[in-house]
């Protein structure tokens, strides 16, 4: 554990609390892509199989994994059941097969061993890298977002961005690196650059999040 990893994980936790807070206080999941949230459940379910099949890492690791699995399922429940009328599938139109197909192929090619658990682990890493695309696509379509939604996205983007210095630190202290996680993580962070730019230049200056026409 190093400071970058810890702050990254806390940022990930914060993003989920911000999202839950947004849904509960506005009693609405407007502006949130159900597809992206469903992809996160898929990511966690396929990656955290190691809770059952893998080796025990730490109590911290187990608790965080259970939290991410539980909270992401709860968010789906809120969107599909409790606040269903506020969820508008007609603007959430990104085609999931464009993500699931390539991630499946990549996972079959790039993995640490050709076993179901390792293939699913790779799949989860690749899918996480692009899982935000339906959400960003939705943002692009509507052209604006509530401030709280942008705080959620910023915290979520910061999480993987902070993993990058964590990997550099671990490379120097442990002497090894994980090419699959690192390359996918760089792509994942890269997808947020546009968003971060507008977030910093507009939302943090107190303006509304609006995409240039």
């Amino acid at each position: 554990m190093n400071i970058f990893r810890l702050i990254g994980d806390l940022s990930h936790l914060a993003s989920i609390f911000i999202l839950l807070h947004k849904i509960q206080t506005t009693r609405s999941c407007r502006g949130i892509s159900f597809k992206t949230q469903a992809l996160y459940v898929t990511v966690f379910a396929t990656r955290y199989l190691d809770l059952i099949f893998g080796e025990f890492v730490s109590v911290y690791n187990v608790i965080m994994k259970l939290f991410f699995l539980g909270s992401s399922c709860y968010i789906l429940y809120l969107m599909k059941m409790k606040y269903k009328p506020t969820n508008d599938p007609s603007i959430d139109t990104f085609r999931l097969e464009y993500l699931l197909g390539p991630c499946t192929v990549l996972a079959l090619i790039f993995n640490f061993s050709f076993t179901p658990v390792e293939i699913l682990w790779s799949f989860s890493i690749f899918l996480e890298a692009v899982a935000i695309l339906p959400q960003l696509f939705m943002l692009q379509r509507t052209g604006e977002a509530e401030a709280i939604t942008t705080h959620y996205l910023a915290a979520l983007g910061a999480y993987r961005a902070l993993y990058i210095p964590n990997w550099i630190y671990r490379y120097y202290t442990e002497g090894s690196w994980d090419p699959i996680a690192v390359l996918a993580g760089l792509v994942q962070t890269g997808l947020y650059l546009d968003f971060f730019y507008i977030y910093v230049t507009k939302v943090l200056q107190g303006q509304k999040f609006e995409l240039p026409a």
Partner: peptide, 10 residues
């Protein structure tokens, strides 16, 4: 196979 790094990240 490449040597498998520990999957301890979340």
């Amino acid at each position: 196979d490449v040597q498998k790094p520990e999957h301890d990240e979340l």
